[in-house]
Design a protein around this nucleic acid. Structure first.
Lengths: 335, 335
DNA sequence: GCCAATCATGTAATCGATTTCATAAGCTGC
DNA sequence: GCAGCTTATGAAATCGATTACATGATTGGC
């Protein structure tokens, strides 16, 4: 491939001048500028960002590590991150942690080697030494969706507590008393927060949280299915199941369908995370929607701000909201 | 950040030796190697891939440009590309063309600037000059899902013709005669192929393809909804609608639901692309499933093969298959 | 008509790694 | 005791850009 030196030779100028043209430096004569552009076109010149980055120590790239590519919540997040970053002239390099700490660290490492200017992480578990070191070194990192307590890293996440309270009230009003939670893992901040909010909401509504009704999963389809099976196999199964994320809901639906049970007549269902197809299931599913687009946008602004100013950023919490559909509707008067 | 020079100083060796340790060169004394590792740890040294790439002219990175991140088909594809690439020690940089040729070209350009070793493209439209030039320069490019005729670029795609024939037979057997197609755009190879296969299959079953029943969309939700509305507003609306991809199906479902129509009693529905939630809709949706994981894996093997051998690769076509569910079931004897 | 300012351009150092070539030290065999 | 190897290491060039500094030409003011 043509190098800046070739362009310079072709245009009859020095490499410095070509570089100036490349960087829109105003102190280049119009006629010279035109000659340089002609040379670039003639040679199909594509500037080498690798060389440029080495010299400038900036890559105009941000790394994004998401929990699971197959989870539409993260895909939507990735989309908005991507859009906002491009708007700011940054490229996004994405890594899929697949909910595994080792894979997350693998990506942190390669992204650091590639010298991304900033890093957006949806941390997969409690602190790993690598992430801790990153935070302590004060690198431009922002946590997205999830946080890690004890680390001084700005974060963007949503708060579902109010929406969960509203959901539990809705369930009680619809006549449900025995409500179960297929939660996320306690190792994740989102898992813990949703579990706590659920317990608080149940107490507020004067409902009992039975220990056997609260089961931790891993935010993936398989655990949703397994937990649903366990709950339905109980001597006294729950009347309603609230799933900790959309993939666990998907697993739950599989199991409910496999058993030939009807929603909500046999068991009511609600989900954390709203996804496009929830309105097309039989029946449409009541869910708590997170402001994904807004979260992604904001996170990008925060990292870029940190990159450019070097200053610490604030954390932000955006509210989630309940979308009532038909999967929790009233139980018959006489059950 | 620590540089190789710092590590060398700390370990009391030259940068050449540190580089040898970094690259597992066997001609380094064990004791020296240990000292170098200690120095790296002490300094939290992270090798600079930018500098390495500049010197070696290889980035161990492949670029992937997909049609639309919000389309689960592409997400699954991206996932398998990612997995396979990582297995081979490559990083994937993904760009979202959002089904727009200009945005596709934007990514081709930045990926080239970043000097990716190879490029996987799901081309968004007919040839752009940039893509053509790429192909002619013989760079390691592989087309995925879609092809561009006239360009000598190896590709990996699936063939739905047999499955579409099977689907049309199924529809006819279920008593449907007036079958419509909400197709993809004629500018995309997949759009054309599916339309042609549909016409062929209809002819084979002795069914008429009415011009007003074949309407081109753009593989996105909005066009699916618009076309469905147009079809249902016809004086004689179709009995069944076959959608060209999963997003158009989603749009179709919206419109059908908004009108309070039932599937398949009022209108039968089938989709190209199978996605997880099709089995949970009311009723579950008959669809044609592509071997996404296999396609992604194969494409990665092809580019990496081209990168490493420099030789041209073959194109591959993998079969799609029909998954019959309940959205096209028999019409009542007397309609 | 000369000095200073302005404009346009070039020379060369630099970023952080890899790699070629040179070399020193330690062995082996005769 | 020395030629010839092997082993371990270092010095310096190199990849392709950016940029500080230098320089030459032109212009304007007085």
């Amino acid at each position: 491939m043509a190098r800046i030196k070739d362009v310079a030779a072709q245009a009859g100028v020095s490499v410095a001048t070509v570089s100036r043209v490349l960087n829109d430096n105003p102190s280049v004569n119009e006629e010279t500028r035109r000659r340089v552009y002609d040379a670039m076109n003639a040679l199909n010149y594509v500037p080498n960002a690798v060389a440029r980055s080495l010299r400038t120590t900036a890559t105009r790239t941000i790394g994004l590590i998401i929990g699971d590519v197959l989870n539409p919540f993260f895909t939507e997040l990735a989309r908005s991150v991507e859009d906002e970053a491009r708007r700011e002239g940054f490229t996004v390099v994405m890594g899929n942690a697949d909910e595994r700490a080792d894979q997350q660290d693998h990506y942190v490492r390669t992204l650091l080697e590639q010298r991304v200017d900033g890093l957006l992480i949806c941390p997969t578990a409690e602190v790993t030494p690598l992430v801790q070191q990153l935070a302590e070194a004060g690198r431009p990192v922002v946590f997205l969706d999830r946080t890690i307590s004890g680390l001084d890293v700005p974060s963007v996440r949503s708060d579902g507590a109010a929406a969960i309270a509203e959901l539990v009230r809705h369930l009680r009003e619809q006549g449900h008393r025995r409500i179960a939670l297929a939660s996320g893992p306690a190792t994740l901040s989102t898992g813990r927060e949703r579990t706590d909010a659920f317990a608080t909401a149940m107490a507020a509504e004067g409902l009992e949280v039975r220990p056997e009704y609260v089961r931790p999963g891993d935010f993936r389809e398989g655990s949703g299915r397994r937990i649903t099976a366990e709950l339905l196999d109980l001597a006294e199964p729950p009347e309603a199941i609230f799933f900790g994320d959309n993939l666990m809901t998907l697993g739950g639906l599989e199991e409910i369908q496999a058993r030939g049970l009807r929603i909500p007549a046999d068991v009511a269902v609600a989900s954390f995370d709203d996804v496009t197809w929830f309105k097309h299931t039989a029946p449409p599913i009541t869910a708590i929607a997170q402001p994904t687009a807004e979260m992604g946008r904001l996170a990008v602004r925060l990292v870029i701000g940190r990159i450019q100013s070097g200053q610490a950023a604030d954390s932000h919490v955006l509210p989630a909201h309940l979308v009532i559909r038909r999967s929790c509707e009233r139980k018959g008067i006489m059950e």
